[in-house]
Design a protein around this nucleic acid. Structure first.
Lengths: 177, 177
DNA sequence: TAATACGTTTAGTTTGAACTAAACGTATTA
DNA sequence: TAATACGTTTAGTTCAAACTAAACGTATTA
């Protein structure tokens, strides 16, 4: 590996690492994805250990997460016990994978929790104790519940779109590009 | 404060705390927003200390972040040195605020870093050293650069939309609602 | 001028997520 | 059967972010 290419690679992987961290994922996960993404051939777990510079355990767990998100794909070769990984290069598909895996469950959780708070604010006891506050709480909680529902629907829609492309939204919004 | 209402409030604030943490913000920040959101009157810093149960310093820094994101608004009353806060209740506006503050700068950073990696992979030295790898790197890096550009444009568009509502996207996508 | 009432900043501490090192389970080969 | 080559799991450690406690700056009041 020559200097400039090694530097380009190193730079790129570091950037992926930072982005990963920014989005709330482990830094090593981004670095591992970057290494796989920049590999012309499928990469084995041990090669990743060497290239990224983390231990086997860390690679094992992170690469499993990456696979769950649909960011990498596992390949088994006959007469070879190693697992090989390739990168998903369609990033819109990656986004949908992340939304499906992370956001969906979190949205459901948020919705259920708000519903529970709202239940409490709607009890006769709450109204009897402090009617003004109870009504106010109900209004505010209903407001955020509506928002969460809308967001939930929106995300579900985005996930369902299997032809989401860079131009999809901009075309719909009628921008100039 | 009666039992049911206090419970509803506590439940709600805890949920906001969890959501905040999930999106990569401090838990206290979400809790503080929740407390302000559920207050019929503007809330002072010391009231927040009492209600949320964190120290003044933490409230001070978190409430400043909330204001920067456009999630709360500061109100000064004449003949009163205290700062009072109210919650932004238009969550689509909140989303745009978060996108503007967080994502925009991070996107620019990501774009610049990829451009830098790409520069390195495009040097004559890189091509001379290992042409196949250099070309491959260039392809992959260009691919992700295009994606980042699209995403950047998309987010810029969302931020610019000052009439973004729950129905906006669903109407555009032509779903049944 | 001193005392008070604010919000802010800072040094130090806490905490939890992500890592390492190493044991482990299992399949394959000698 | 023993040795090897894998990926996985686990106990322990590290580290950065978020917090606390307290000092601080400043404006207001007595």
């Amino acid at each position: 590996m020559e200097d400039q290419l090694a530097l380009a690679r190193q730079n790129f992987i570091q950037n992926m690492s930072r982005i990963s961290h920014f989005w709330g994922f482990p830094k090593a996960m981004g670095a591992i994805y970057g290494a796989i993404y920049l590999s012309p051939q499928p990469v084995s777990l041990d090669e990743l250990v060497e290239q990224v510079g983390v231990t086997k355990g860390a690679v094992s767990t992170n690469v499993r997460t990456l696979e769950r998100l649909g960011m990498v794909h596992k390949h088994l070769e006959v007469g070879d016990r190693k697992d090989y990984y390739t990168a998903e290069t369609d990033f819109w598909k990656v986004i949908r994978g992340v939304l499906r895996e992370r956001e969906q469950q979190e949205f459901d959780l948020a919705l259920r929790a708000v519903a529970e708070s709202l239940e409490l604010a709607r009890t006769p006891e709450a109204l009897a104790a402090d009617a003004d506050t109870a009504v106010f709480y109900q209004q505010r909680m209903t407001n955020i519940q509506d928002f969460f529902n809308s967001l939930d629907n929106l995300v579900a829609m985005l996930i369902a779109l299997d032809n989401l492309r860079s131009g999809t939204l901009s075309r719909l919004f009628g921008n100039s590009s």
